[in-house]
Each structure stands twice: as C-alpha cells, then as structure tokens.
Design a protein around this nucleic acid. Structure first.
Lengths: 221, 221, 221, 221
DNA sequence: CATGAATGAGATTTCATTCAT
DNA sequence: CATGAATGAAATCTCATTCAT
C-alpha cells in the first residue's frame, strides 16, 4: 500500500518549496485529481487518494474546491481549455498544399491524442461521465470538436479549390477523415497494452486511405 | 448463455408467479442491472435500484450472483455473447459482390450499433470500466471485435480477388473501414441528443468515401 | 465511553424481543434521540450516540428518518402532539368553582411541567433551537400554548361571571397567571439541582398570590 | 480560571489602526463572538464566522483566548458582570414609596431585559448551554439573580414595614413578582416576531396584577 | 501581534452485504 | 426461494486548532 502518511508535518513545506516552484496549490491538486479520476472514474475515485497523491491533507482540497463535483469539473475544464491551443498549432502554417496540411493534422492527431495517454484518459472520462456531467461534454464539443472540425473543413475546401481534392459528400462530415484515429484511441482505451496495434503502420494505412479517397481520379497513390 | 452464474437452475422459472413466464429470474435481474449500470456506471449504480427496477428484494440478487461485481460481469457477458450471432448474421449470404457485402456490413453496423442505444450503452460501459474489468474488454474483443474484423477482412480479400478493390495498406487494418461508424457511436455517447448528427447523410458519406477509397482507379464514382 | 459495541450480533435481537414488545423501532429511536438531543442540544448531539443509546447501528436510523434534521423534527413532534391530551385532562371536570379549577390547573402545571424533567428538556430544546427550527416552535405554540391559554381564559371568564373574580386587565393576558410556574421551570433548566427551590412552598406562594390578585376585595384571604 | 484570559495586555489597544479607538481587540472579538453564539448556539457557531464578523483572522482569536470554550466563557462573563450595575441602578433612589420602587423595578426589567434582544439572547444561551456550562449559569445566578432578588426582597420588606403591602408567602419568593416579565422574555425568545404580544398592555396588566396582589385589602385598585 | 493555509479528527451519510424469518 | 431490516465499513465534508511567515 506504499507510504500512507506521506511526509507528515515539517518536511512537507520544505519539500514542496523545492519541487514545483511555479505551479500553485490548486494546480497540484488538479493534477492529482486527474490521476485519480482517470484511474478510477468519478464515482470510484476517493478524495483521500487525491489528497495522498497530492501530498496534502483531505481538508486542503476543500480550501480550493467546493466539493468532489467542483473538483472534477475544474479538473476537466483545466484540461479542455488549454488543449485548444495545441490543436490550433497543428496547422498554423498556411503554406503548403491541402494534402500537406491534412497529413500534418492527422499525424498531429496521432501524436497528441491517440498516442497520448493523458488525452485518452480525459476522453474516456468525458465518455464515461457524460451522463452525469453533460455540460463538460458540451464544453469539450465547443472548445475542441467544433474548432477541430472547422480546421478540417477549411483544409478540405482549400483542397477542393486548388483542385487537389474532389468534391464529395465527405465535405459535410469532415470528422470521417479522422475517424480511424478516434477508433485507435478507443482501441487503446479499452485494451491498453493488451492487444497491440502497430500504430505506425495503422496511421500509414489511415493516411493513405484518406488521401486516396479524396484525391481526384487518375492521380498517383 | 454459457456463463454459469446466472440460470443455474433452468426449471422452475416458467412456473413461478405467472409474472413473466418466459424469462427466468436471473434474466430479469440482469436486465434491471443493465439499465442501472448503463445509467450510472458501475460504481455509482446502487443494487437497491437494480432490485427495485427488477421488482424484487435486494437480497434476492445475492441468490443468483455472488456480489455486485459478479452481477456486473454476468450482465456484460450476457450481452456480449449473444451479440456475436447478430453480427455474423449481417453478411451470412455468401452471394453478392464484395461491395454489396461491405455496404450491408456497414449499414448493419449503423442499424445494430450506432443507432442502438443499448449497444452504445454497453460499449460505453466497456470503455468506462475497462480499467476495473479488463477481462470483460478482452471477452468483448475476442467475441465481437475479432470476428467482426475477420468478416471485414474476408470481404476485402474477396473484393481484391474479384478485382473490385485495389490492394492497399488498409487490408491490414480493416477496422478503418468502419471507423466512421465508431466515431458516430462515440458522438452519440457523448452528446446524446444535444448535438444532432444527420445519420442518414453521414452514413451515406461514410459509404461513399469508403468505397471510393477501395475501388480501383478509373471506375465509376 | 462504556461498552462500545453493545451486544453485537445474535443476542441483540433476542434481547430486543423481550424488552419492549409493544413499541416499534422508530419509537425506540425517537426515545434515544430525545435523550441525546436533550442532553447535548441539536448540533452537539451525535447520531452515533443516538444509535448506541437505542442499541442499534448508525445506519438503522436512516431507515426511518431522512437525516439528523428529520430525526430531530420527528422527535419534537412526537413529544408535542400527545402532550396536548394531558393538558386538556387537567380541567376536564366542568364542575367546581373557578378557583377550584384554577388551583387544579396551576398545580397540574407544576406536576406535569415544572417538576417533569422530560417536559423541561423539550421546552429547553424549543427555546434553544427556535432560531433553527421556528416551525417546531410554532407547532408548540399552536398545539400547547394556545389551547392552554384558552383554558385559562375560560376559567377566568367563568370566575368573573360567577362573581368569584374581579374584572381586570389580566383577563387579556391569562399567561400571567402561570408565569411563576414558567419561571420555576426556567430556574430548574438553568440550575438543575444546584440551586434548590422549595417547590411546594413556592407553588403555595404562587397560588396564594394569584388568587389574592384575582379575588374581589373584601373576601377572605 | 477567573477573568484573566481576555484583556491581558491593557495598553496598545487605543492606538491600533484607528479602527475603533476606544475598544480593544479582545472586546471586538467578544462582541463578534456574542453575535455568532447568539445566532447559532455554542456548538453550531463557527470560529471562522466569529473572525469574519470581527474583521480579523481566525488565528487571532487564539492570541486572546485559549480555545472556543474559553472564548465562549469569556464572552458570557463579559456580558454578565457589567449587567449587574445596570440592574442596581434601577432602584438606586432610596426615596419613594415601595410601590414606586416596585413599578420602577418591573418597568426597568421590561426595558432592559424583556425588550432587549441582547439580554434575551444571552439568557437563551444560558438556558441552552447550562448543561455544558453550569458554572456560567452559576455566575449568572450569583451576579444577577441573587442581587436582583435581594433588591426585590428589600422593596417588599420596605412595603410591609411602611404598611403599603400585606404580609404574605410571596415575600419568600420575590421572583414571583417579575415572573410575568420572564415569561414574556421566553415568549419572545421562542416566537420572535411571529406571535406578537402587546407588551405595553401586557406590562400594564402585569403591574396592576402584582400591586393588586400585594396591597392591603380595602385600598384603591 | 496578526495572518490564513493547512491539518486531521470527527461527524454525517451511503450502501453492499448478511441473515432471521 | 424470497424478503427487507439491520449492519458497519467507508466515503464525503466540516471546522477547531496549529504554525510558518
């Protein structure tokens, strides 16, 4: 069960000071909360474990968050909002062909989401708890999904305009283009390391397939 | 139905109380358990509510299941095993072109999974609780995913052999073909009815895109 | 601090059965709750002690009462409502002079309230917690005070009508007649047995004084 | 254990911060404590609220008082001791008839206690917490009740000596004379403003009744 | 002197599980 | 077989008290 009374009294402050000088208490708590919630889900997570993980006492959590629910909401928000920036950064270079941009976006999706345990964990929480916390799912949709789809849509339009891509129904549902990445994410969520998936090859197939479906007939594979 | 826990004593069920003469007690409990677990997740579901929903007393559950965990496992199993049959049935007709079969499979996926709340619920549980119940995810993988992938693979091979489809990396990862369906499923899980998705059009785009990516160059759109 | 796990398992039921066969569980809990709340006040009373006193487990309380507040309210109500009957019984005999009735009422007040620890305790709770539970004070007022005042008023009117008592301002405030009893009650509440009060003599003085103040001039002392 | 806790360091208070130049820190805290304790009772009062009300930090309380209990005791004492003076002042004029003095005393009781929310609050606390703090009730008895009774007794004796009042049992229990005032106090405690009582008329009836009971037969009403 | 972040004991409340009927 | 009252371990949350600054 590992050390149960982690650093009681005195040393704590001293330890802390040298540890993460830039982050505040609330951030540390949110980080600890994320680990617990991700590992156990909302209902099964114990605030005592959050505290232990954060190296603080139970009561300290309540100095910064109203209750378990408040902590959970704050935690999810703290992960969703900053994520937007990362996504936007994927295709900030306006130069390059549509295909180039699409390749960047898709491989970025793999690097930042599919292969990123933290991203998968937060996604799992959003799926698992969307019944109890629909607002959080809505925030996620508004802050991440919608901007992401917009970006995709713009790339598709650019490709169509430049003659790279053909015009097709898919332009109305750009999410189809990254669906294989989402599926891989779910795959990892459910099977973790138990059922391996050769992600490099998978992503290669994904990109090849997507481009093949988009390109105008007669072009090279 | 192989699962041993429930239905230990086949007889007697048909003749009790005349309530639901065809289903046995354990089945009723499993049905009630599914509703509760699906609505609240494993940890937050209360056995008292399962009992109430099943019209029985709390203690009765323990006559058929060892404990909450046993009930949950039995419930998930009872949903996974029979599901295989339905899937297999989708493309049982060996006749028809590969494209025909693929269309059938994909639209079947939409009808049976994407549009099916029960299927989505069980999938959500598998995702949400895969940390606590990895064996169940494994069963799901073995009984549903693997057979499904095999079927897809066979269709692809048939299509390649018949010259309908081209040879591509995607043949190694047939799941990519139904990925858009999975994404739609996740979409519904997370947003329910709050962010609509025109499923008919979406499926149309999905199928068009998939076939377009598979067909050999120079064929009709 | 005495025996902490009072009669755990087995014996409990057996003991119970032979103890108070007529009263139900909720009544037993209410009785235990009264003792605890009376001894410590609402906020300082611990439900664990209520349970211990009732020979039951903490959780059992929640089978019958929603929460601590619900238990408290139910307890106060269970004491207030039946009390009315006792009061009414004091002067049910319509025969006798007004003086006779008044003597009966006052001495009844001493016997049933002033000298009755249980009555004093509930009164103390009503006073102490009237800020947090004003409805309970209102019930008390409606069920006990008002009927009591009515009775007093009727006696006064009868006395005036029969010529025993003189007409005076006091008829509008009959509570003045039993005020000395209330003062004695408060005295006991505050000082318990530490500052004795010769209640027999006190009540004698009270009655003598009241009757002296009511009687018409020129009559015997 | 006497009064030492608070005001240990007399000087310095007048010159701090210019907030309330005449009162010292401890006094401000006691005032804030009174409001909180009066509003919620001892157990339910939160020291954090006391601090907030006093415009100080939680820790500051502990600079002047040992703990919550010490604060409470000091607060009650600080209210009881000075009260004596006010009472004594009521009938300091040795001149006047006994009736005059009695009228003064009773109406003083109404002005200073019955109509005085602060006095009622402290009385309620004494009643509510007499189980937990019997010493405070004793102090109250010694400092307030006993002197008050002595004063009453002296007036009665003076009245008897001067022939104004008759000799009666009541002389042994002078508290009976102000009992109606106490009852009105309790009435206000319990019902606040919800069940009005015409205090002017009530007091009139009280005084009339008391004097009527005391005067010798044959005198005017 | 004063602060207020941090602590952790303790109180309330929930709920899986048991078992006498 | 079925019940549901009862249990008590465990989780959430509060708040008096401490102490580094």
């Amino acid at each position: 069960m590992s050390a149960k009374h982690p650093s009681r009294r005195g040393p704590k402050k001293a330890l802390r000071r040298g540890r993460k000088p830039k982050e505040g208490r609330p951030q540390e708590i949110l980080a600890a909360a994320f680990e617990e919630f991700a590992a156990n889900g909302y209902a099964a997570a114990r605030l005592e474990d959050v505290a232990r993980r954060g190296g603080i006492a139970k009561g300290t959590i309540y100095l910064y968050f109203k209750d378990k629910e408040g902590l959970y909401r704050a935690m999810v928000r703290s992960l969703i909002y900053p994520a937007l920036g990362t996504i936007a950064g994927l295709v900030d270079s306006p130069s390059g062909s549509a295909e180039e941009l699409l390749r960047k976006l898709i491989s970025g999706h793999y690097a930042l989401v599919v292969r990123n345990k933290k991203a998968r964990d937060i996604l799992r929480l959003l799926i698992a708890e969307s019944g109890k916390f629909p607002q959080l799912s809505d925030i996620f949709h508004r802050e991440i999904i919608e901007p992401g789809l917009s970006t995709l849509r713009r790339i598709l339009e650019k490709g169509v305009a430049s003659g790279e891509f053909r015009k097709a129904k898919i332009n109305d549902f750009p999410q189809i283009l990254i669906a294989p990445g989402v599926l891989a994410t779910i795959w990892f969520m459910m099977h973790g390391e138990r059922h391996r998936l050769d992600l490099d090859a998978y992503m290669g197939a994904h990109i090849e397939f997507v481009l093949n479906g988009l390109r105008k007939r007669g072009e090279h594979s």
